[in-house]
Write a protein that binds this DNA or RNA. Sequence first.
DNA 1: ATTACTAGTAGTCGAGTAT
DNA 2: TATACTCGACTACTAGTAA
Lengths: 218, 218
Amino acid sequence: MQKLLILIELAKEGAHSKSIQISSSELAGETDCSQQTASRWLAKLEEEGLIKREAGAQGQIVELTPEGTEMIKSLWQDLNKAFGDSSRTFKFTGELVSGTGEGGYYIGQEEYQEQFEEKLGFKPYPGTIDLRLDRDSLRLKERIRNLKGIEIEGFSTEERSFGDVKCFPAESMDEEAALILPYRTHHEEDIIEIISPEKIRDKYDLEDGNRVEVEVET
Amino acid sequence: MQKLLILIELAKEGAHSKSIQISSSELAGETDCSQQTASRWLAKLEEEGLIKREAGAQGQIVELTPEGTEMIKSLWQDLNKAFGDSSRTFKFTGELVSGTGEGGYYIGQEEYQEQFEEKLGFKPYPGTIDLRLDRDSLRLKERIRNLKGIEIEGFSTEERSFGDVKCFPAESMDEEAALILPYRTHHEEDIIEIISPEKIRDKYDLEDGNRVEVEVET
DNA sequence: ATTACTAGTAGTCGAGTAT
DNA sequence: TATACTCGACTACTAGTAA
């Protein structure tokens, strides 16, 4: 129990994004245990690879490792699931990039199109708008991954298979749209794909590098 | 450690909002411990007043108590603080209600007005728009309370003192606005106060009971 | 299939204290 | 001041098993 509490306290102090200076007694005070326990746990957490630290006779500098961060973050996401992220609008920002054209190939598939029309209420233009997300928006993507969206089922043709896809109603430039999130990701992590009934790129004369905002409903 | 994990697992299963049926071995599977441990913890959690349950030879029905829910929720909020809720738009919905007129009295104070103008960029109409929140939006209010907003400092007159207030830029009906969150709350918990440079009530002919949406930036 | 007791072991605790 | 060791007490674990 203290192990988790200590890890959480370190996260609260910001150790997931920077090195922090914290003494074992300070930490003990925050987590309601003895200085010895805090010290012992810090040593153990280091051993387990969850934190990195430099401990000396005059204090220590602590930082969560990616593994430690991951552990706390997944706990956070569990709680997000539990307490819900309902009725929330996520605003993604990023710049327009050219897809490989593969997006259109996917979306154009009749099986996908039918489901989009049925579940989203519109027939998407057979092409995706690809956005390279800003740093801030990257977190949101990770977050939205855990939310329940509209499920689009995959299927197989003779040549290949198309995976399950999750989507969320969205709006961009006052146009109806949807965020597409494949379960099997084939994109770089900082890119999202948007579909819309209109060919938004042409309608608004968009070019690569233009800044675009997308509001996603959950 | 298991104690927290088990409590979290129960929350994940929805036990904070309804009674759930879960066997000790099921719970043990999810939290990676033995059936005996899960069983023992459930008994202990009940003893501590964190859960309520009906255990019998053919399973048990479990539900978090308000205390248990509070415990997990505060953990969640700690993590929210740590990992941030940046770049998020919160959409509040509710129905318009008449304030006591006290809102206008507050907002009208010169010391507040100056700070609003300086920190929000507009001089609010001296009156608040009060919204009785929908159930879904209630959660958001609780959530937004923990976020860093724009601080408006309190002050004292000869007669009385006005407390610190936190506010967030917002938009409602395409009008610039701000959500006002007093630290010392004097309202019922399901009500939020909005200010705006315009007298929105008149401009849009709003009456009590009308549904209003407010998008709050964080 | 459940819940949950017992017993033995492993893990965790804080006090005292060394460095 | 720090960190962190030893040690005795206590707690929590799992396996076995009863009900």
